[in-house]
Amino acid sequence: MKIVVLVKQVPDTKNVPENAMKEDGTLNRQALEAIFNPEDLNALELALELKDRYQAEVTVISMGPPNAKEILKDSLYRGADKVVLISDRKLAGSDTLATSIALAGAIRYCEPDFDIVICGRQAIDGDTAQVGPQVAEKLSIPQITYTINMDRIENNHIFVSRETDNGIEMVKGELPLLLTITKEANIPRLENIKFLMKYKKADIKEDAKIKIPVLGLNEIGIEEDIVGLNGSPTKVKNIESVVITKKDIKNYSSDEKGISELFEDLVKNHLVE
């Protein structure tokens, strides 16, 4: 069985340090640490569980700048068999549609006989949750999103539970297909010391002892005009930083008078009926 996991390196938007806000109230992106997108670790964990249970072969693919090799090394440390970096200047500015075109191309090129593609539910930089379903469409395979538990694989079918808007659904899907995984699905394993030693020297450099392959658009056979900024239907018109400012605060005393005034104001402003 062949499994492909898609992982993304993201800025750690959940931990914005004080110095990340510039004087003018804009965000200094460099101040944010680059991390393994949290739910992609859950996606990788699910693949590794399938590897343990069904001897699956796990290929991890990431599209990003050269520095994204860090999360690929991390994937090797946790037990991935093969990693590939898709990196090309012409991919800069890709929105989710352009990203999914490139990733689908990469999957077709690297692992055409895959059985399962696994993605995180969403990446914490954009929180879009779109790339998974869009890759599935590009590969003409079904998708199961919001997966919270994997039960088993039997007769070329996978049995999973997924979160719906009002509960849980148990579904059966015929392989090949794509899954997106939420953080509830599992607890990602840590790096394994044995793999850490083995892959410590892995790198994208030509002369690296263990070479992490880097593929550009030419290799994966994708035309440049359907990816990158030009291939992206959505454009960012503008961005505003949300600066947490001390708002005008109104004080009320905690005695009877203060509380009466508060409720009178709330009712007057239609905040409370």
Partner: peptide, 11 residues
Amino acid sequence: AWGGNIIATIV
């Protein structure tokens, strides 16, 4: 976007 740190206008 960015965990609520920015507001983006997309077209």
